[in-house]
Design a protein around this nucleic acid. Structure first.
Length: 1181
RNA sequence: GCGCGUAUAGCUCAGUUGGCUAGAGCGCAGCUCUGAUAAAGCUGAGGUCCUUGGUUCGAAUCCAAGUACGCGCACCA
């Protein structure tokens, strides 16, 4: 089968083509070999060298696992557009990229090595952290190299033309020296350094942030905003209502509610909304404060909030909250009170404004913990850093509404411990649709809490370390993990012991999880590095600069509003957290003074580092700028004279991918080259997520590096690949499909066509079903057209080099096909230029199916079958014209489709070119339409022919005569000029296709068919009731044409009842002996009467058909001659056979007639024709 | 909660600046054709064009409100 890819030299210019059970994957492998052995890709590059450039920038694929079929969608687009622009004479870079660094690789390597946490990693070489990190980082590099190579092989199999690293020698090189780009390359890392340097030195937007951030205790890493979006899920937690006894109001309590009981250990304050009203609820001997609006609230209704004052306006149904089956629904706070009170009941004893509660002091839930008693918050280092941060931000003075004083915390020597600071503070964001309207504030455990703590001068108590466990100072909790359920129980026990526990409940909410390892995130006070994006919700600062760039690029497909989405993300995102407390990644080039954490420097290049290094350079030299080697370098602080150390953090991996418009184009090493290729003309990736990931990072880094020049002109996004039934593909669900399996079982071309014909704006259903559909719809159909041509051309000795019959001398159907081909070429170019291959594919399917296969070839078969020896000069010329037309169309189709299905078209091309022309279709130019061949009237007329033929078929059906039975006449009342012309220009096409003797026109002005109106009893019966019979009779007497007109006009009254279009069916009646149908204004009828002559002819055709069948089952070749015996007792059959003997003989290639049954090796068959038995016997002669 | 989008046959979707009896492919049933075609053709069953109201001679199409779904954003105790 592999040989099928190359024409056999023994059979003239065209090789025979197999049309059954074609093994497309085998052909694809043969083509890969052909490209490889003949350097086709290199030749293509050679042809385009020096031509106008077309700059494509590849978004790096994560080299962490083998490719999935979902990757193949985007890669197919990338290759298709690359190939199109190559065939239209553009110089391309053909550089593909791998994303190498980051937590996703680390997590896989941890799994491989059986490591559970950071401590395991740092102890890979027992007792030697540096060596351990070194070994771990090496393992990460190894994994990336391994899968980059796997993905390379897979991409090659897909037909993706890039400058790949193919040999062992290629892969032995450093990432910097390879053809593909790697984000772990030195160039990439150092270029990010220059970006960060620019952020710091020029724009002053890099800062050390001391904030509460979501944290993954398993990975030991802060989670950035963009990562957090990936991890929200609905989960059940234990929530709790807790009493905070008020110090100066004996027997009175604040009632607070929280879903994170572990944070109660670090409670510092309680926040109320000064605007809200709070109830004093008396239960037994104690009083509780609860927000008035919260008290009776149905907590299962999703918070639709504050239209309490307009009950008449609340028309819409309230939505119920997302909930998990099996978890009890929430009770209202009032219900909790009722059930606690029993039959005594509770009592509302007063109301108080939130503003009047400010400053009230209370007893905290865990004031006995050492951490709560520590002066200035806990731990000491935390408090110290906070002071320094305040100094840094120059927030020297605070207005403290609790005391009414202006305070300066940096100068305040008596910072109190947390337990002495418990008081009610104001927070305008407190609502009453969730909780009790009084919020427990733990500045060390929540983002808003921390912010509020800063504003209100509350100390922070930060309880957990980087693995999620409690630090010392938290009594029995120390050492336990904050997300451990038993810890929650311990908290509840502790509260119960002090009679602080009001009630607990099971609660369902959306909670963030680590996007990589699915662990629940905790909010933790951390020390991370940020890029200041400028004021949120504004268009100022860095975010504003990026927005200006966003406004200059094109986002496709339009319906997705990509620009609006990107702008939306830019408006809302917080400052960009770029640090990760991990191992495998960009070494953030930030060196900090050991005594003063706010004194830092950013290094912008390897050279600068070398110049500044005062220690560790020798150990570092020769290594990539990764941990642990780069960690050893110290630089001198010119201000203090102390040695500065690099922060141990690595960078957010989106920095790695975001810099590639600079790093891969040699921005820092060959500025002219960069200038030539920047910006990219085109990028394309799957859009979900990328507006906040690659698209964002690329735009952000490019805006900074280029001072506002867009990194690309056009971005094409596409959806997700789903399984055959539209479900998300997951390895765990067992419905994901490996790329290799798909390519080998389904074929890369079929996959590529499926991807290209799909709408990029929607998700795509992938699987054997959809693939088989496109294969049947397009691949096999095109292949069969090709096979038809090649097989007859080979048999017939068609000479592709023969002088072309001038197009104007060719048959109209030839000119029609060539005209429509030009239209397709125009369409192809238009659609590729606007990055809409879908439009091209759908148009091509239509062309191949409706025009080429089902009309041109079907209608012209006898021109190809005609025997050379029997043709005169005109006939030969006509046959040549047919071959040339079909040959041209197939060659152009090859070139048109080559970017989409490079294998199929290559196989076809290699055979069709007949030894002439380019050795590969991919070395040809993309077709250009020839305007002189476009004949739009001809196109319209042929369309009319197809319409009339279709109607004629329907009329035949109504007449109940199969197509083999010749009929006398088809009569057409044209509904348009094109219909009219079609009958006059192409009577032969119509009569042959419909097997009628003649086609005639009905040109009289009255309708050819009489309209008949009939009641649609289903709908009309209800309206007419008892008058139904009467109405039917009345309708029978009416003129159907008039009824139809009245119905169209809208008013039709029958026996006093108004009926509409649906109540009446209009049928059409042909004269006796005829059958007619109507479509719009075109009417067609067929003469259904059989004469004895027509009947005999029909029988003869049935006989021919039966003999052909017998030939086929006898295994004869088309060209084989036979001796034929036809035996029957039926006089009708005998007469028909005798009358049509010459036709039967020529159709079946019978050169001898036998009067008696053939004996011996003859093939016999017993069939029925016209209901009568017929014996067929034939033998090859 | 805010914003954007979508809603048409069992499934996947077309349906242009409003226009006459709303279409295609797949699937289903029947018929047919077949010496390129495991292909194809024809017919049939199957529709509340999400709902309601409005504009209009006329609405799947335009407008408004509602409902459902999807996506993005926000997510708090």
């Amino acid at each position: 089968m592999a040989d099928a890819a190359s024409p056999s030299p023994t059979e003239g210019p065209f090789a025979r083509v197999e049309t059954q059970n074609v093994d497309f994957p085998a052909l694809e492998r043969a083509i890969l070999k052909f490209w490889d052995e003949n350097g086709i890709f290199e030749k293509r590059q050679g042809l385009n060298r020096g031509k106008p450039k077309w700059s494509f920038l590849d978004g790096p694929i994560t080299a962490n696992n083998p490719m999935g079929v979902h990757h193949a969608w985007g890669r197919t687009y990338k290759d298709a557009y690359n190939r199109y622009f190559a065939m239209t004479g553009h110089d391309l870079r053909y550089q593909q990229g791998f994303d190498c660094q980051g937590l996703w690789v680390e997590v896989e390597v941890e799994k491989e090595l059986g490591l559970k946490n950071k401590r395991d990693i740092e102890n890979l070489v027992p007792g030697d952290t540096q060596a351990s990190i070194g070994r771990f980082v090496q393992a990460c590099k190894d994994r990336v190299n391994k899968y980059a190579r796997v993905q390379t092989d897979q991409s090659i199999r897909l037909g993706y033309w890039m400058n790949w690293d193919r040999t062992d020698a290629d892969w032995a090189k450093t990432p910097d020296e390879r053809k593909s780009y790697f984000t772990m390359s030195e160039e990439n890392n150092y270029t990010i350094w220059s970006f960060l340097k620019k952020c710091h030195a020029e724009k002053k937007i890099l800062y050390r942030g001391y904030d509460v951030m979501p944290w993954c205790g398993r990975c030991g890493v802060g989670i950035s905003e963009m990562e957090m979006k990936e991890g929200y899920r609905y989960v059940e937690h234990k929530s709790v209502f807790v009493k905070f006894p008020l110090k100066d109001r004996p027997g009175e309590n604040l009632l607070i509610w929280t879903t994170t009981p572990w944070t109660l250990t670090s409670n510092v304050g309680a926040a109320v909304n000064p605007e809200l009203t709070y109830l004093k609820v008396k239960l037994k001997s104690e009083v509780y404060y609860v927000a008035k609006g919260a008290f009776k609230l149905n907590r299962m209704e999703a918070s639709s909030a504050e239209d309490e004052d307009g009950p008449a306006l609340t028309t819409g149904k309230k939505k119920t909250r997302e909930w998990i089956d099996g978890v009890p629904h929430l009770s209202s706070i009032e219900q909790h009170f009722k059930s606690k009170a029993g039959k005594d009941g509770y009592e509302i004893v007063g109301e108080v404004k939130g503003a009047d509660m400010l400053g009230w002091e209370y007893v905290g839930p865990f004031d006995d913990l050492p951490a709560q008693k520590y002066p200035g918050g806990y731990p000491e280092g935390v408090a110290k850093k906070r002071e320094q941060l305040h100094a840094l931000l120059q927030e020297e003075y605070f207005y403290d509404p609790a005391s009414g004083e202006v305070k300066n915390p940096t100068l305040d020597p008596t910072l109190k411990p947390a337990c002495d600071m418990h008081r009610v503070v104001a927070w305008k964001d407190v609502g009453e649709t969730e909780g009790t309207g009084i919020v427990h504030i733990a500045p060390g455990c929540g983002k808003e809490d921390f912010q509020l703590g800063k504003e209100q001068s509350l100390p922070s108590v930060a309880p957990i370390r980087d693995d999620g466990t409690f630090i010392e100072g938290f009594g029995e909790f120390s050492g336990k993990n904050a997300s451990d359920p038993t810890l929650v129980d311990a908290v509840f026990e502790g509260l119960k012991a002090k009679d602080r526990l009001f009630v607990t409940e099971r609660y369902v909410h959306r909670y963030p999880h680590c996007w990589r390892c699915k662990t629940e995130l905790l909010y933790r006070l951390v020390d991370e590095w940020f890029i200041n994006m400028g004021p949120k919700q504004s268009e100022e600062g860095f975010r504003g600069d990026i927005m200006k760039v966003v406004d200059q690029v094109t986002f496709l497909p339009e319906s997705l509003n990509g620009r609006a989405r990107e702008r939306d993300w830019l408006r809302n995102m917080g400052d960009w957290m770029i640090s990760k407390k991990r191992y495998w990644g960009l070494a953030l080039p930030i060196w900090v003074d050991p005594e003063d954490p706010t004194d830092f420097e950013v290094i912008g290049s390897k050279e600068e580092l070398k110049a500044r290094a005062v220690e560790g350079w020798t150990e570092f030299e020769g290594h990539t700028p990764h941990r642990p080697w780069v960690d050893q370098i110290k630089i001198l602080n010119p201000r203090t004279g102390r040695l500065m150390s690099r922060i141990p953090d690595v960078g957010n991996p989106w920095l790695d991918a975001g810099i590639v418009a600079f790093s891969t184009l040699g921005y820092n090493t060959d500025r002219a080259y960069w200038r030539k290729w920047y910006p990219a003309d085109f990028i394309t990736e799957s859009f979900p997520g990328q507006f906040r990931n690659w698209f964002y990072a690329l735009l952000a880094l490019s805006t900074m590096m280029s001072d506002g020049e867009p990194p690309f002109k056009t971005l094409l996004g596409h959806g997700l690949v789903r399984d055959e039934h539209g479900k998300e593909m997951h390895k765990s669900a067992g419905n994901s499909i490996e790329f290799n399996r798909a390519a080998e079982e389904l074929g890369a071309d079929a996959m590529r066509w499926l991807y290209c014909r799909a709408n990029p704006a929607t998700n795509l259903n992938f699987g054997p079903g959809p693939i088989n559909e496109v294969r049947a719809k397009f691949v096999i159909k095109l292949w069969n057209c090709y096979g038809f041509f090649a097989n007859y051309a080979s048999l017939d000795g068609f000479d592709p080099a023969a002088p072309q019959v001038p197009v104007e001398d060719r048959a109209a159907i030839d000119r029609w096909l060539l005209s429509d081909l030009q239209l397709l070429i125009k369409k192809a170019r238009e659609e590729f230029e606007v990055f809409n291959v879908m439009g091209f594919c759908l148009a091509t399917e239509e062309f191949v199916d409706a025009k080429l296969s089902n009309w041109y070839i079907r209608r012209n078969r006898d021109r190809f079958w005609s025997k050379n020896t029997e043709l005169d000069a005109t006939g030969s010329r006509d046959k040549l014209a047919a071959y040339q037309t079909l040959h041209t169309v197939l060659l152009d189709l090859c070139r048109l489709c080559a970017p989409i299905v490079p294998f199929l078209t290559e196989v076809m091309w290699k055979n069709l070119r007949g030894g002439a022309g380019a050795e590969s279709v991919h070395l040809t130019d993309y077709p250009t339409s020839d305007e002189s061949l476009i004949d739009s009237e001809l196109s319209q007329d042929m369309e009319a022919v197809l319409r009339i033929v279709s109607l004629g078929g329907a009329a035949r059906n109504a007449a109940k005569h199969k197509v083999r039975q010749p009929l006398a006449e088809l009569r057409v009342q044209p509904g348009s000029d094109a219909d009219h012309r079609a009958v006059e220009r192409f009577p032969d096409l119509i009569t042959e296709e419909l097997n009628v003797k003649r086609v005639t026109l009905h040109t009289a002005s009255d309708p050819m068919l009489r309209s008949i109106a009939k009641l649609n009893k289903k709908t009309a019966a209800a309206k007419l009731g008892a008058k139904l019979k009467e109405a039917e009779a009345a309708l029978d007497r009416m003129d159907g044409t008039k009824v139809a007109e009245e119905l169209r006009g809208g008013t039709f009254i029958l026996v006093g009842v108004a009926l509409d279009v649906a109540d009446v069916t209009i049928g059409y009646l042909a004269p006796d002996g005829w059958a007619g149908v109507v479509d719009n204004r075109t009417q067609v009828m067929i003469d259904a009467r059989l004469t004895p002559e027509l009947k005999a002819e029909g029988i003869a055709r049935d006989v021919v058909r039966s003999v052909q069948d017998a030939r086929k089952t006898a295994g004869l070749d088309v060209a084989d001659k036979i001796a034929l015996f036809l035996g029957t007792e039926s006089d009708t059959l005998k007469a028909a056979i005798t009358a049509h003997r010459p036709t039967i003989a020529s159709e079946t290639q019978a050169v001898q007639w036998a009067d008696a049954p053939l004996n011996g090796d003859a093939h016999t068959a017993a069939v029925k024709v016209d209901g009568q038995p017929l014996t067929i016997a034939l033998r090859k002669v």
